[in-house]
């Protein structure tokens, strides 16, 4: 495994691009989103999960209220109909939002397989800079010599190689 750090996002992008044809598994570690240009909502499943959970929670809670007041425990409050849809909307909205935000939170962790407190790359101490101003990548597989040469040509500020 090789972990290499660069001084700028631009350098890291060049390194990633040069490694693309090598068939190695590359992962980046960056202080900020490397790929800002792409629209996040298009490239992530989290918004869809949130939308689904929100709709399910909202319509589900609406149905629960309708069942509760129409069948579970019908009670006449000042002549209001059992199916009192205007007030039901309020609770349905609140619960839908709760489900959507909860699903976004949990969905983010599930998709990224978190929590993952330790990873192999942690053996490289310099990786801590990735949450400061260092732009890092790790390479698994591929031809180590060629990968090393390619990385060196970009000019890393930190580089560590060790057998997997």
């Amino acid at each position: 495994m090789i972990v290499a750090g660069f001084g700028s996002a631009e350098a890291l992008r060049r390194a990633v691009a040069s490694l693309a044809p090598e068939g190695a598994r590359v992962e980046t570690f960056t202080p900020d989103d490397l790929d800002e240009a792409t629209e996040p909502t298009k490239s992530s499943a989290v918004p869809i999960i949130m939308l689904g959970a929100g709709l399910l929670g909202g319509f589900g809670f609406f149905a629960l209220q309708a069942y509760g007041t129409m069948s579970g425990y019908p009670i006449n409050v000042g002549g209001r109909p059992d199916f009192s849809w205007p007030p039901f909307i309020v609770n349905a909205f609140e619960f839908g939002v709760l489900c959507a935000i909860g699903a976004g939170f949990l969905g983010f962790f599930a998709i990224n397989r978190m929590p993952k407190l330790f990873i192999a790359e942690d053996a490289c101490d310099e990786l801590r800079e990735a949450s400061r101003d260092g732009w890092f990548l790790s390479v698994r597989g591929g031809d180590p010599k060629r990968v090393r040469a390619l990385l060196d040509s970009v000019g890393p500020i930190a580089l560590k190689e060790w057998p997997e």
């Binding site: 960056t30 989103d33 790929d35 490239s43 949130m50 939002v97 935000i101 983010f108």
Partner: peptide, 28 residues
């Protein structure tokens, strides 16, 4: 930190989720 390391996937999903959460928090 739950093992947040700023990997490509983490950032992508993070930004998407945070944007929608903010869009929900305002009407909430």
């Amino acid at each position: 930190a739950f093992g947040f390391r700023g990997t490509g996937g983490q950032w992508r999903h993070y930004k998407a989720a945070y944007g929608i959460m903010a869009a929900l928090m305002a009407p909430l």
